[in-house]
Amino acid sequence: GATAVSEWTEYKTADGKTLYYNNRTLESTWEKPQELK
């Protein structure tokens, strides 16, 4: 079967924080998503 690919993209901001963006739900979060833990 196909492996579930994470929908989350990780961005590094200018101040060194990490922003997570979900390509499916168009949601963005500063918290690390469950799927990435």
Rank of each mutant, 00 (worst) to 15 (best):
G1V: 12
G1H: 14
G1M: 13
G1P: 12
G1R: 14
G1I: 14
G1D: 13
G1S: 12
G1T: 13
A2Q: 13
A2L: 13
A2D: 12
A2P: 14
A2V: 13
A2Y: 09
A2K: 12
A2G: 13
T3W: 06
T3A: 13
T3H: 13
T3P: 12
T3K: 13
T3G: 12
T3F: 10
T3L: 10
A4G: 14
A4K: 11
A4I: 12
A4F: 09
A4H: 12
A4L: 13
A4E: 15
A4N: 14
A4V: 14
A4D: 12
A4Y: 07
A4P: 12
V5F: 13
V5G: 10
V5N: 11
V5S: 13
V5L: 13
V5W: 11
V5P: 11
V5I: 14
V5E: 12
V5D: 11
S6M: 10
S6N: 11
S6F: 08
S6H: 10
S6E: 10
S6D: 10
S6L: 09
S6Y: 07
S6K: 08
E7I: 07
E7R: 03
E7V: 06
E7S: 05
E7Y: 07
E7H: 07
E7F: 07
E7W: 05
E7P: 05
E7L: 05
W8R: 00
W8E: 01
W8A: 01
W8D: 01
W8S: 00
W8K: 01
W8L: 01
W8G: 00
T9G: 04
T9N: 06
T9A: 06
T9K: 06
T9E: 11
T9S: 10
T9Q: 09
T9W: 07
T9D: 04
T9H: 09
T9P: 00
E10T: 07
E10D: 02
E10F: 05
E10P: 04
E10G: 01
E10K: 03
E10M: 06
E10H: 04
Y11P: 00
Y11A: 04
Y11S: 06
Y11M: 11
Y11V: 14
Y11W: 08
Y11D: 02
Y11C: 15
Y11L: 15
Y11G: 03
Y11T: 07
K12W: 08
K12S: 07
K12V: 15
K12M: 10
K12G: 03
T13E: 04
T13H: 05
T13L: 09
T13V: 04
T13N: 08
T13D: 11
T13F: 12
T13M: 14
A14S: 11
A14M: 08
A14Y: 04
A14L: 10
A14T: 09
A14H: 08
A14E: 11
A14N: 07
D15F: 04
D15R: 02
D15N: 08
D15A: 05
D15M: 05
D15Q: 06
D15L: 04
D15T: 07
D15Y: 03
G16E: 01
G16K: 02
G16A: 01
G16R: 00
G16W: 00
G16Q: 02
G16Y: 00
G16D: 03
K17N: 06
K17Q: 08
K17F: 04
K17R: 15
K17E: 09
K17A: 05
K17W: 04
K17H: 08
K17V: 04
K17G: 04
K17Y: 05
K17M: 05
T18Q: 03
T18F: 06
T18A: 03
T18E: 03
T18I: 15
L19A: 07
L19E: 05
L19N: 03
L19V: 11
L19M: 12
L19T: 03
L19G: 08
L19H: 05
L19D: 03
L19S: 03
Y20W: 12
Y20H: 02
Y20T: 00
Y20L: 00
Y20M: 00
Y20P: 00
Y20D: 03
Y20N: 02
Y20S: 00
Y20E: 02
Y21K: 06
Y21N: 02
Y21W: 10
Y21H: 07
Y21R: 08
Y21P: 04
Y21F: 14
Y21Q: 07
Y21T: 06
Y21D: 03
Y21I: 15
N22Y: 02
N22T: 00
N22W: 00
N22F: 00
N22M: 00
N23Y: 07
N23D: 06
N23G: 06
N23R: 09
N23W: 12
N23I: 10
N23F: 08
N23A: 08
N23M: 09
N23S: 14
N23Q: 11
R24D: 08
R24G: 07
R24Y: 10
R24S: 10
R24T: 12
R24I: 15
R24K: 14
R24P: 03
R24V: 15
R24H: 13
R24N: 10
R24Q: 12
R24L: 14
T25M: 02
T25I: 02
T25S: 03
T25G: 01
T25P: 00
T25V: 01
T25K: 00
T25L: 03
L26R: 13
L26W: 06
L26S: 10
L26G: 15
L26I: 02
L26F: 13
L26V: 01
L26K: 15
L26M: 15
E27V: 06
E27L: 04
E27G: 03
E27Q: 08
E27P: 00
E27K: 06
E27D: 04
E27H: 03
S28Q: 10
S28F: 15
S28K: 12
S28D: 03
S28N: 05
S28A: 09
S28V: 15
T29D: 03
T29S: 12
T29W: 05
T29F: 10
T29I: 07
T29L: 05
T29Y: 09
T29V: 10
T29H: 07
T29G: 03
W30I: 07
W30G: 06
W30Q: 09
W30L: 09
W30A: 10
W30T: 11
W30D: 10
W30H: 09
W30K: 07
W30M: 10
E31I: 11
E31H: 07
E31F: 05
E31N: 05
E31W: 04
E31D: 11
E31A: 05
E31C: 13
K32D: 04
K32C: 15
K32Q: 09
K32M: 09
K32P: 10
K32T: 09
K32Y: 04
P33I: 02
P33S: 01
P33D: 01
P33V: 01
P33T: 02
P33L: 02
P33W: 01
P33F: 02
P33G: 02
P33Q: 02
P33E: 01
P33N: 01
P33H: 02
P33R: 00
Q34K: 10
Q34F: 11
Q34M: 13
Q34R: 05
Q34W: 10
Q34E: 15
Q34L: 14
Q34H: 10
E35H: 08
E35M: 06
E35Y: 06
E35T: 05
E35A: 11
E35L: 05
E35I: 07
E35V: 05
L36F: 08
L36S: 08
L36K: 07
L36H: 08
L36M: 11
L36V: 08
L36G: 05
L36Q: 07
L36W: 06
L36N: 07
L36T: 08
K37V: 14
K37E: 14
K37I: 15
K37P: 09
K37W: 15
K37T: 13
K37S: 13
K37A: 13
K37L: 15
